[in-house]
């Protein structure tokens, strides 16, 4: 693990809009990590206690389904946050996560983030807004995928009747 400077963290979209003091507080608790392709961040059912801010590379959230093997639920890339399950009371990973490509990320212990939020409510508000925004956009994306819009015969140019 490598220490993270405020300037490095400020370049991540998660830190956009935070002031210098807030970025410095987060950076002091973050570590830079590199994960080789194929290595797992976590497995389904394990204790959820970390948050990663992806800088480069791609991570697949996956789930093992009997008879169907490993299914990919969603992939995350640069600028995305990985690991939100610690926000729920169960604090248990709902899916697994594996590096599809070499990944570099900032890693934060969820306990440190929670401690920071409780000590500094303004920063806590800012972080909560970001994480809630991420959760909402993933919920919306999941709903759109449920619609299966590419399956129905469309009325768009190129393929109908």
């Amino acid at each position: 693990m490598i220490g993270v400077s405020p300037a490095e963290l400020a370049a991540h979209s998660f830190a956009r809009g935070l002031d210098d003091r807030q970025v410095a507080q987060l950076a002091a608790r973050a570590a830079g990590i590199h994960m080789p392709a194929g290595e797992r961040f976590f497995d389904e059912g394990g204790p959820a206690a970390r948050l990663w801010l992806i800088r480069t590379g791609r991570v697949a959230l996956d789930l093992r389904v009997p008879g169907r093997g490993r299914l990919i639920v969603e992939t995350l890339g640069p600028g995305d946050e990985l690991g939100l399950s610690w926000l729920s009371p169960a604090a248990q990973w709902q899916f697994g996560a594996v590096a599809q490509e070499p990944v570099s990320a900032f890693e934060l212990a969820s306990a440190a983030v929670v401690e920071l939020c409780e000590a500094d409510h303004e920063l806590g508000y800012q972080l909560t807004r970001r994480l809630l925004g991420t959760a909402i956009s993933r919920l919306q994306a999941a709903r759109i995928r449920i619609l299966d819009v590419y399956a129905a015969p469309g009325q768009w140019a190129g393929g109908k009747r």
């Binding site: 990919i72 759109i144 995928r145």
Partner: peptide, 13 residues
């Protein structure tokens, strides 16, 4: 939208 574990690309909208 859907892929098994052999797909090396993105999954999502």
């Amino acid at each position: 939208d859907k892929a098994d574990g052999t797909w090396p690309g993105n999954v999502g909208v």
